[in-house]
Design a protein around this nucleic acid. Structure first.
Length: 585
RNA sequence: GCUCCAGUAGCUCAGUGGAUAGAGCAACCGCCUUCUAAGCGGUCGGUCACAGGUUCGAGUCCUGUCUGGAGCGCCA
């Protein structure tokens, strides 16, 4: 209803001028959705704020606006209520006409944005030679959903996987690779590390216990930085092994992403430091090259530096992030760069961006956004771990979700005496399990910490993915039962909105475009989840109250259109969350 | 010590400066001869951490305090 809001907004603005004179043109009519359905659909609060300036009681101001307000084509006659609210209720005929328009549109009336932006979404970003764990879950699925929404709205989105494929830890890893798998470096395809977590732990253990190993690791880092061929081959082997493991997870989660790791920016790092020097920002302190930050102090109250080149000549992640932000603006021509990382990195990004800004690398019109999310905690409120104290592997978590969904489904089939094929059971369990994990995460406001609970995440009751999937399945059930081809319903069907539940559902269907605009602006996928959950609730209420197949024409076809629009909106909305639908479950 | 984030029903969480703060879960009570009951209806549940301030109006904005989390020079 973006268009409807725009209309109402203009009409109210005109009424303000007509009532109080030209000097009030440009006044915000303060049009917002009604706080409660009993007050109508929208309300204008402008009278309350204007009363003082006009020297009139708010109700009198509201009455004057209403007298000059012409919205008869959209709304029932406006009313003034309470201290001076102007309440607006859309006419059923207007709503029906709107629904008819979106019914024949594949995009459900969601027009692509007029000015598409070049957007980079930086998300997921696991570390090479480490297995993806529960900590990568949030970035991966929140980032994917944000990218999907922006893509659907017509933006030009580049999804970047800023993998940790460079840095000092590789000295340790390569040294251990040479020690434990010497044949891998001379024979093609000889390396199958399998469990990368174990490999990493063993390397770390060697590093911690052996001085000679540490020294070898340190030298290996230098070899890597200077491009030693043999070392690079070892590094490549590790990266390849990790990619295979990552891709399995991405396939499972249906994530599409382009890898451009930290190593990509490695050749650009000296230039970054040089240019900071030229900009007069660089200060050498205790052997390290730094930029001293404005507004940040250390424990002693002294200015805090951002170190861009270590005293040993090496670079760190701040340098890489500086190179990345510059490259993304200058080479990728990004206008909006979205970083989906945990909230703990807020300071880091603020610091890097401050330096980039002071160096003049961030032109006006380029927006840098950190999309932070809370830490994953166990039910005790502490950092989430397995019972034995290890980090939970993402793979295990997803497998567990699918296994639980399968067990639940099999119980249900037995209780209901249903017979289904293995393929059916496997497919439904897969979709329900993965969806449950994604939805549990996406449906929360990402800024708060995330209390991880298998039971809650996989619960099939309430505000969960299965509830939404079930609403979709119900519509498909109607189609099967009645032999209905929704695509053949025709565009000239009169839509009738008589029952309360029909009207409520219709209004909610028309809010989809508003919600997507809000998600694109605020980058909060939980708003989309909230919308889809409410849509499912309103559909279930309609389904409960209104017979569809048994209804008389023209009511029958009208209700079929409402059901079809609900299903299509659910399918589209869920796809923007990275969640697939099922025809039966 | 400093910076950032959070604090809303027993639990998990929504909430765009507006009217009587909402869901889900849990608990309890109803509704399947009828499109899948993975559903629908109902009951119970609140000092919006605390104290000031701004405003016609504050869960929302500002200041301070308390509590929890994350981070704070050469890891990423």
């Amino acid at each position: 209803m973006n268009a409807t809001i725009a209309h109402l907004h203009d009409r109210l603005a005109q009424a303000l001028v007509a009532a109080f004179g030209r000097e009030w043109s440009g006044t915000d009519p303060m049009l917002v959705p009604a706080s409660n359905p009993k007050f109508g659909d929208y309300q204008s609060n402008v009278a309350l704020s204007l009363a003082k300036h006009l020297g009139q009681p708010p109700r009198a101001v509201a009455e004057a606006v209403v007298q000059h307000l012409d919205v008869a084509d959209l709304c029932e006659p406006p009313t003034v209520a309470g201290p001076g609210f102007i309440n607006l209720t859309l006419k059923p005929e207007y709503l029906a006409a709107q629904l008819q328009q979106i019914q024949t549109d594949e995009r459900l009336g969601i027009a692509p944005v007029k000015q598409p932006q070049r957007v980079i979404v930086d998300f997921s970003s696991p570390n090479i030679a480490k297995e993806m764990h529960v900590g990568h879950l949030r970035s991966t699925i929140i980032g994917d959903s944000i990218a999907r929404v922006l893509e659907f709205l017509g933006h030009d989105v580049l999804r970047l996987n800023h993998v940790g494929d460079w840095g000092t830890q590789f000295g340790m890893l390569i040294t251990y690779l040479r020690e434990a798998y010497p044949e891998a470096l001379v024979t093609a395809n000889a390396l199958a590390l399998g469990d990368l977590t174990t490999f990493y732990k063993q390397a770390k253990q060697r590093f911690d216990e052996d001085e000679a190993f540490r020294e070898a690791s340190r030298l290996e880092v230098v070899e890597l930085q200077s491009g030693n061929e043999d070392t690079l081959r070892a590094w490549n082997l590790l990266c390849e092994q990790s990619r295979i493991a990552f891709q399995e997870i991405y396939d499972l989660l249906d994530i599409r992403i382009t890898e451009r790791g930290e190593s990509f920016y490695n050749p650009l790092l000296p230039g970054v430091v040089e240019d900071l020097e030229k900009a007069g920002l660089l200060v050498e302190d205790q052997g390290a090259k730094c930029v001293f930050l404005e507004g940040y102090t250390n424990k002693d109250g002294e200015p805090l530096p951002l170190i861009v080149q270590k005293s040993d000549g090496g670079y760190n992640y701040a340098t890489t992030d500086l190179a990345a932000v510059r490259y993304r603006i200058q080479q990728d021509h990004a206008e909006r760069i979205i970083y989906v990382t945990d909230a703990g990195q807020a300071n880091h990004f603020a610091q890097v961006w401050q330096v980039a800004r002071r160096a003049g690398w961030i032109p006006d019109g380029v927006e840098l956004v950190h999309v932070p999310f809370g830490v994953v905690q166990g039910e005790d409120g502490k950092k989430f771990k397995t019972r034995s104290g290890d980090t939970v592997r993402l793979r295990d978590l997803l497998d567990e979700a699918v296994a639980r969904a399968r067990a639940d489904l099999e119980t249900r089939l037995q209780d209901e005496g249903r017979q289904e094929t293995d393929e059916f059971i496997a497919h439904v369990a897969q979709v329900v399990g993965i969806s449950a994990v994604k939805y549990a995460d996406l449906s929360q406001n990402r800024t708060s910490n995330y209390i991880f609970s298998y039971d809650k995440m996989l619960s099939l009751q309430g505000n969960t993915a299965p509830y939404l999937l079930y609403a979709y399945v119900r519509v498909q059930g109607i189609s099967r039962k009645g032999g209905i081809d929704f695509q053949q319903l025709g565009a000239e069907v009169p839509i009738q909105l008589q029952e309360e539940t029909e009207l409520t559902l219709a209004k909610h269907l028309l809010l989809f475009d508003e919600v997507l605009s809000a998600v694109a602006a605020d980058l909060l996928p939980n708003r989309l989840c909230q919308y889809l959950f409410e849509l499912s609730q309103k559909f279930n209420q309609f389904y409960d109250r209104c017979p569809i197949l048994q209804a008389e024409e023209p009511q029958r076809t009208s209700r079929l259109v409402l059901a079809d629009l609900t299903a299509r909106t659910l399918k589209q909305g869920l796809s923007l969350l990275g969640i697939a639908v099922l025809e039966r479950m």
